[in-house]
């Protein structure tokens, strides 16, 4: 690696820089590199929706072709979250196409974008400790239901994995996940009330 420092340097470039470079030069290879970073995620999401490896692989290629056209039509700030929206849209549109009889409202990309921005905003509990308004959060955690509180405590404060928690609390991993999800939602509501 030391022998090819330039290559390595290029590799390390953050997304925003690569994106800027692409928008400037329109060099497809730059976008290709950017895409390659998240390709496994795109593939995973496609797999989630299609449940078939072959169809998902095709979708990964289609999305790759799609972003070359779409990227100029939108003002993309965060490539990763934009790619997430494009991927999800592609999969959902494809699944909807399959059912011609039904009329399903297809949300526009703007709407998706709005939704994504909200999602992207970090949940208080996901923030690193120093940016957490700790006291308020602790109070809110105390007010959670017992199971949810235990899960949050083990997962976030004692850094236990789902599997460990499921072992300790004697419940399924799925249950642990849903408890954490619900707890997070409750915490958010609680925190907003505090403000």
């Amino acid at each position: 690696m030391q022998l090819i420092p330039f290559y390595r340097k290029k590799k390390e470039k953050p997304d925003s820089e690569l994106l800027g470079l692409y928008l400037e030069t329109r060099e497809p290879e730059v976008l290709g590199e950017l895409y390659a970073r998240y390709m496994h995620l795109v593939y995973g999401v496609c797999l989630k929706y299609f449940k078939e490896p072959e169809k998902s692989k095709d979708a990964v290629i289609q999305i790759y072709e799609k972003i070359h056209l779409e990227i100029h039509r939108h003002e993309v700030k965060n490539f990763k979250s934009w790619l997430y929206v494009v991927t999800k849209n592609h999969c959902l549109m494809d699944l909807r196409k399959k059912k011609p009889g039904e009329t399903v409202r297809v949300s526009t990309e703007e709407e998706w974008g709005l939704f994504m921005e909200n999602e992207a905003e970090l949940h208080p509990v996901d923030r690193t400790p120093d940016e957490m308004p700790e006291q308020a959060l602790e109070k809110c955690i105390e007010r959670l239901k017992a199971e949810q509180r235990k899960c949050i405590d083990l997962f976030y404060l004692k850094n236990k994995s789902y599997r460990e928690i499921s072992g300790v609390l004697e419940m399924e991993e799925k249950k642990v996940k849903s408890h954490i999800q619900n707890a997070k939602r409750n915490l958010k509501i609680c925190m907003e009330e505090k403000k």
């Binding site: 995973g44 797999l47 929706y49 490896p53 790619l83 997430y84 999602e119 994995s161 789902y162 599997r163």
Partner: peptide, 27 residues
């Protein structure tokens, strides 16, 4: 287990990754 926790926390933050992991469970 510590690594698992960190990984899972990342997933909590990022729906993209979380969905991808769901997808990978199919293969």
């Amino acid at each position: 287990d510590a690594e698992r926790n960190r990984f899972e926390r990342e997933l909590q933050k990022n729906p993209f990754e979380a969905e991808a992991l769901e997808g990978f469970s199919h293969i």
